[in-house]
């Protein structure tokens, strides 16, 4: 798997949502397909749905129209894949969650931090004498912007969930 981040020259970014059988090995079939065929992956998330026999996976990838067509065809060919949709073909909502732990040494820095968290509509979810842990949800760009806003405050740790997406309106991915 080429672990790169998106660039504009290399084609459009696509969010592909996949409903698949919740079977052991399903994830590795998808990951294996991407690495064997040299497709790009920006992120990949997976979890069971309300129907526990099904998992929903979200793959963020990029490539030319031809490559994306091949990716969706090859994914559809996997026997465990029940259905998929390229969310970027229509209006959709994209979300990612970030948790970030930062060092807070003085009261001043704590105040400044709280303001910053408010501006981005994040939440402080854990506090110690020397650190804050903040949770933030949004598009990838918003999370990037938030991380970049920490100029003076030292970042101790970040973790991102990877992107999930859903289409707007009544349209849905369901069997």
């Amino acid at each position: 798997m080429k672990q790169k981040t998106k660039t504009d020259e290399e084609g459009m970014r696509h969010i592909i949502s996949i409903l698949m059988e919740n079977e052991a090995g399903a994830l590795s079939r998808v990951a294996g397909l991407f690495s064997a065929r040299g497709y790009n992956i920006e992120s990949l998330t997976v979890a069971p749905t309300e129907d526990i026999t099904l998992s929903r996976m979200t793959v963020v990838t990029w490539g030319s129209d031809e490559i994306i067509e091949q990716i969706t065809k090859q994914l559809n060919k996997l026997v465990d894949v029940v259905k998929l949709v390229d969310l970027t073909e229509g209006p959709h909502i994209e979300r990612e969650m970030l948790m970030i732990k930062v060092r807070t040494s003085s009261n001043d820095s704590r105040e400044e931090l709280t303001r910053l968290v408010d501006i981005f509509r994040g939440r402080i979810i854990d506090v110690t004498a020397t650190s804050y842990t903040i949770e933030l949800t949004g598009t990838g760009d918003k999370l990037d912007a938030f991380i970049n806003a920490f100029e003076k405050t030292p970042i101790l740790e970040t973790v991102r969930s990877g992107v999930s997406g859903i289409s707007r309106g009544a349209k849905n991915l369901h069997i």
């Binding site: 590795s28 294996g32 026997v79 465990d80």
Partner: peptide, 14 residues
């Protein structure tokens, strides 16, 4: 065996 053969089968089962 499932892992080794995955890229060269149509499908496999354990």
């Amino acid at each position: 065996a499932v892992g080794i053969t995955r890229p060269c089968v149509k499908h496999n089962f354990l």
